[in-house]
């Protein structure tokens, strides 16, 4: 089965800014692709092209077999879009917003009302359904925005930084909803600048910066590919630290770091997990009391830093307003 989203060599320029500089990616149906990058990396531009909102300068973007430039009319019924800010009408109630979109999609009044009720209930907004959205909290707004984008049961959902600016509880709730949607077979393209979010939700991650794809893979692959792991061993007896350090010497790539206060040794073992296992076995067979040991993976933050040379939330210039 061909991927439900296919993007090939997409370019888009806004004045001086090359927002997309040859982006290529593919998303299989029913999976979550995390598009990860700092502000101004081109994430939103990519989503806007895929959601038929802007035309790319060159390249190809296909959703559910239809080219977004040639047949936007066939792409739109398949997609749902939830933007960075809640694009719902603040003067209308939550129910009215949902109802309006249902009617616009061609639902008869009754069907639109039932669908609105279903979604309000699912998003714990039933009690607030008759209140104007302007009175909602940030988390509620984001929920109603997501609900609105689900009215037409889209097969492909674009979540453009869905949790930016949300409190931790609302964030967790949105993650839960996203997982359920994926469980029901929805394909999700998620843009985020939060590494933990991509790590948490995405089956595959595409890292972009300055409009280019700089790395791609599962979260684990990305972590493995950029630098190795660190074996951390905590001993039961501080007097054995020097002995242990000598014995571990042959295993590490670099110098062994010893933390005498925590009675802990750290040694970089690359990506070879077997090497780490042998190192621990060596200590144990030498009669050194190993109280605890574990392999630290690099965080996605480390990955990001290694790939782009800057921290993920670096203040790059925002994309120009459309």
């Amino acid at each position: 089965m061909p991927p439900i989203i296919e993007v090939e060599d997409l370019h888009k320029r806004f004045g001086e800014t090359q927002a997309l500089d040859g982006v290529t990616l593919a998303v299989d149906e029913g999976t979550v692709l995390g598009l990860l990058g700092p502000n101004g990396a081109g994430k939103t531009t990519a989503v806007r092209v895929l959601a038929t909102l802007i035309l790319a300068d060159s390249g190809r973007a296909v959703v559910d077999g239809h080219d977004v430039h040639q047949r936007p009319d066939l792409v739109r019924p398949v997609i749902g879009l939830t933007g960075q800010y809640a694009a719902v009408d603040e003067k209308l109630t939550g129910a009215e917003n949902l109802h309006m979109v249902g009617r616009l999609l061609g639902m008869p009044r009754r069907v639109a009302e039932r669908r609105a009720d279903e979604l309000l209930e699912r998003f714990s907004l039933s009690d607030a359904g008759d209140r104007q959205v302007g009175t909602y909290s940030g988390g509620m707004r984001r929920r109603v925005d997501l609900a609105v984008s689900l009215v037409g049961r889209p097969r492909v959902l674009f979540l453009d930084e869905p949790t930016t600016g949300l409190d931790p509880a609302s964030r967790l709730e949105l993650w839960g909803i996203t997982r359920e949607l994926v469980g029901d077979g929805t394909t999700v393209l998620l843009t985020t600048q939060y590494l933990d979010e991509a790590d948490e939700l995405a089956d595959r991650i595409v890292v972009i910066d300055h409009g280019r794809v700089i790395e791609e893979g599962t979260a684990d692959e990305l972590k493995d590919r950029t630098g190795g792991r660190t074996l951390q061993v905590t001993l039961g007896d501080a007097d054995q630290l020097d002995d242990a350090s000598r014995r571990l010497d042959g295993f590490g790539d670099d110098a062994i770091s010893v933390d005498r206060d925590k009675v802990t040794l750290r040694v970089a073992v690359g990506t070879d997990t077997e090497l780490a296992a042998r190192a621990v076995a060596e200590l144990a067979s030498a009669g050194i009391v190993v109280e605890d040991f574990h392999l630290d993976r690099p965080s996605l933050d480390d990955v990001f830093l290694a790939l782009t040379g800057h921290a993920p939330t670096g203040a790059a210039p925002e994309e120009p307003a459309p």
Partner: peptide, 28 residues
């Protein structure tokens, strides 16, 4: 509470052509 997504689509159809403009324009 399973999300009622495309598992059970209701049958409805959008109007086409000029009728679509009138239909959508009225709602907006």
């Amino acid at each position: 509470l399973r999300l009622p997504t495309h598992a059970s689509p209701d049958s409805y159809q959008r109007p086409t052509g000029l009728r679509a403009v009138v239909h959508d324009g009225r709602i907006v």
